[in-house]
Amino acid sequence: MNPPRLIPFEAPPNANAHGALAPLSVRGLTVAYDEKPALWDVDFEISQQDLVAVIGPNGAGKSTMIKAVLGLTPTLAGNIRAFGKPVKHARKRIAYVPQRTSVDWDFPASAEDVVAMGLYGKIGWCRPVRRRHRGSAREHLDRVGMADFASRQIGQLSGGQQQRVFLARALAQEADIYLMDEPFAGVDAATERAIVDVMRDVRSNGATVVCVHHDLQTVGDYFDSAVILNIRRIAAGPVTDVFTEENLQAAYGGRLAKTEIRAIADSA
């Protein structure tokens, strides 16, 4: 018997049934810092106007995945595309909200300055930040309820307020995909509410949000879909489909009690 001819890999699965290109498609993503892989052969695809939670235990490679998608960390293998193009060529359509702890909050900048940074891509090289850019930065601060703090030095804001400044900065980028790294970590209830509202708002404008998330209880309330990671991709799809006992068990193993897993799976 003659073995089958292999189909070229180029053609498939980036376009969906309607021929639209997925905002984000990740295939075979493998990242290893040392001998231990941080991500192993991860595949998933995210569709438009989706709110996606990336969940998994500590060290599951959630942040690494976001960074790898953005090209901030070297990968061993994998093919990452945004709207069918390599991420490098789709930068303007992607906004990134890093972990709050990744920057020096004592930096000499005001909330407005930080939000204006989101506009730098649009302003372009060598051109100064003009008044209309500042105006636009203020509008975005207003959207997250931070208009009164525009000229405050960022170090004097509370953790939740800092997170909202970061969110406003991402909004200023007016992107089609928002990648957020643990925006809910250590924030107050008001900020949590504000983040959720903003996410829904951008979704209704046609954008997609991918968000590293820790709190399994709220995934069902806040998000449409989930990617469950633990080095490998355990599952990806609508929250109701992927939040099964089996998947959660595979991702969290002994780290969650069986009863907890069952409760979460049932609630979803």
């Binding site: 960074k67 953005l70 090209g71 901030l72 930068r91 992607i94 906004a95 990134y96 890093p98 990744s102 920057v103 020096d104 930096f107 900048a109 300055d113 930080v114 940074m117 989101g118 730098y120 891509g121 302003i123 090289w125 051109r127 100064p128 930040v129 900065r169 980028q173």
Partner: peptide, 16 residues
């Protein structure tokens, strides 16, 4: 502007 953003948040700067 470029010096400022790369100094404050290299991650964001790279994503821009």
């Amino acid at each position: 502007k470029e010096l400022k953003v790369t100094t404050f948040d290299p991650g964001l700067a790279a994503s821009l």
